[in-house]
């Protein structure tokens, strides 16, 4: 890299640290920012703001600016909680518009192989939320990976004895999906979980 400008080199260097951004993309982004001073200023401000303003909700551990978050303090069904692994997963369920209850973000999944144990997740916090509450149902929406499934089972084992209904997201064919393009493991699962018409 030619050292035409110290500050430009620094910007390129910082951009390159972002996931999915390589040398060429970083260069393109840096020149784009250089050419539009307004964008640069807005971007810089928003970057500072995001760390100052955003934190985790003390109830559900989702991303928020106010504590508790708008979902936890809003007019939502208080009797159902959907448990997800990461804040992004919360957004995915929320985007579907099909869920009107509240959430709980675990911030990970059990993985003894990588040293993630129950105490490393927001599990104790979830159980505290259930104590003496009006919650009737827990929807387990952890990922369908080996770790996500084990986490769901673990939570089920803790919550069921409390007399609360525990459900798990169904899995199977994607909507609008052509059968021929779906991988065989998914077809197998969809067959196992088939419903009567």
């Amino acid at each position: 890299m030619i050292h035409f400008s110290q500050s430009l080199t620094r910007l390129i260097g910082e951009l390159k640290k972002l996931p999915g951004v390589g040398e060429r993309t970083a260069l393109r982004l840096a020149f784009h920012i250089l050419k539009s001073p307004r964008l640069g200023k807005d971007l810089a401000e928003s970057l500072l703001e995001v760390h100052a303003g955003v934190r985790f909700c003390s109830v559900c551990f989702g991303i928020t600016e106010e504590d508790p978050c708008c979902i936890c303090s809003g007019e939502r069904d208080e009797t159902v909680i959907c448990v997800v692994e990461e804040p992004q997963d919360l957004l995915a369920v929320e985007r579907s518009g099909a869920f009107s209850g509240r959430y709980h973000v675990l911030h990970g999944a059990l993985s003894p192989l990588s040293g993630v144990m129950p105490a490393d997740l927001k599990i104790a916090e979830l159980l505290r939320r259930l104590e003496g509450s009006s919650i009737r149902e827990i929807v387990l929406a952890t990922n369908f990976s080996v770790e996500g499934e084990a986490t769901a089972l673990y939570l089920g084992g803790l919550i069921k004895p409390l007399g609360i209904k525990v459900t798990r997201l169904a899995r199977g064919m994607p909507i609008g999906g052509d059968l021929e393009y779906v991988d065989s493991a998914t077809v197998q699962k969809a067959l196992e979980g088939r419903n009567e018409l």
Partner: peptide, 23 residues
């Protein structure tokens, strides 16, 4: 799943073992 369960057994940790056993 086996590797995860073995990791837990090696640590001598019972918490979470039932879930891995079932899986």
């Amino acid at each position: 799943t086996l590797k995860n369960r073995n990791a837990l057994l090696k640590l001598g940790e019972r918490d979470g073992l039932d879930a891995w056993t079932e899986r």
